[in-house]
Design a protein around this nucleic acid. Sequence first.
DNA 1: AAGTGGTCTAGACCACCCG
DNA 2: GGGTGGTCTAGACCACTTC
Lengths: 246, 246
Amino acid sequence: MAPRKGEPGRYVAAELAAEFRALIQSGELLPGAQLPSEAALKDERSLSNAAVRAAYERLMAEGLAVSRHGKGVYVLDPKRLVRTSPRRFARGAQSIQSADLEGREPDVQVDVDEVATASDRVVEILGAGPFCRRSRLFSLDGRKLQLATSYLPAGLAVEAGVDQTDTGSGGMYERLAEVGRRPVKACERVYGRVATSEEAQALGLSKGMSIFLIERVAYDEEGRAVEVNEMTLDASKYILEYEFPI
Amino acid sequence: MAPRKGEPGRYVAAELAAEFRALIQSGELLPGAQLPSEAALKDERSLSNAAVRAAYERLMAEGLAVSRHGKGVYVLDPKRLVRTSPRRFARGAQSIQSADLEGREPDVQVDVDEVATASDRVVEILGAGPFCRRSRLFSLDGRKLQLATSYLPAGLAVEAGVDQTDTGSGGMYERLAEVGRRPVKACERVYGRVATSEEAQALGLSKGMSIFLIERVAYDEEGRAVEVNEMTLDASKYILEYEFPI
DNA sequence: AAGTGGTCTAGACCACCCG
DNA sequence: GGGTGGTCTAGACCACTTC
């Protein structure tokens, strides 16, 4: 319980969060707007620092706002990208992200390739290493959305010529097809949980925010796993869409 | 920063959380074990109440522990159910959950049916109401896992005879098939976010835990939407698995 | 230097559970 | 009544940002 000044039994933090949540969701506070500073709010309403912070942390965990140390707390844009699953492989299949952007400006991406080791889970799926690893960070409007790390058996990667930053026209899957290992089936496993501090830092998230972890395994016509892709997504920015027959 | 007793600059809450997280994940603290009480921990380590609570709240948001008011904080079982998507419709297709249990004891479920209104989103998909609503709560080992609310056009529900608690052998989809409206395609949209206090209460979750919200729309052979199912899942208890062709 | 977020201490008080 | 979780106040101190 929350013993407020002469008015005991109120949940001040929860109510404060609800108040600002309503303002944000109703559009009275637009994306980019700055929330009252913690000190100001605490003085105005005769609350403690901790109560105000608890409220703001809640809003940040919900992805409604974000803080910038030394500057302020700002309302975020609530728009989400739809990540549609079978469909985005249908045509051309260049960047996995191409169908995600809905006509908005193309995303920035950073690639790193190397011969590498991998987790036990990757070894379980692809067999013993070494592996070719490709790490990519997708951003939109300066906001980090997704971190993707792809693993291929190193031998296959060299054979297909995808052990470099640029995988050429049609992308990695086209190169794999050219050496007879076209991926024809995918299996995605989705985990949802609160981000660790490392994940939060990597994606620029606030404490307590939800993320999706997606493990996608691609299989060729003979059922052999050819690629494992481990993705970390800001859950507040995505809708995952899957279509399938019943 | 965290000015600790004569040792400033330490993040006591984060470190405390990390310490217990390691104990839980390594198996030194087994599911069901009770963590030290907040008061004991605070006294033993000369910390403040708030620091200990912050650490415990973090563990609870991660789904590693749960508190019971007046009793203690307890380690949770980290096992997850795999919810495999196209496959669980393959045979018989009775309860949607049947493939989720992996041979463990069957889940308890509560059903409520009625003629009802629905959200704008449901109206957008199914057209104007009224609707037949079926709400179900799935539990396992006394732990609430999933809340599912299904909407059908009321006329169709009556015609197919699924406006009751028991939908007969083969379940609702078989009844719909008998009146020429067999669902043949599904589209699921997955949202991830921290649970609201209402959702947390309904599912028995701790503050700050992640949930999946799944909206599944089922379509018949002619592409007409016949059912919308809105599901709320404890994200810490599930892996969502989807298979599809590339 | 002033303003802002961020972490912590110390202590109060309440609600729930059980013997 | 004693133990346990849960919420809050009051105040200290630090780090980052801007002027």
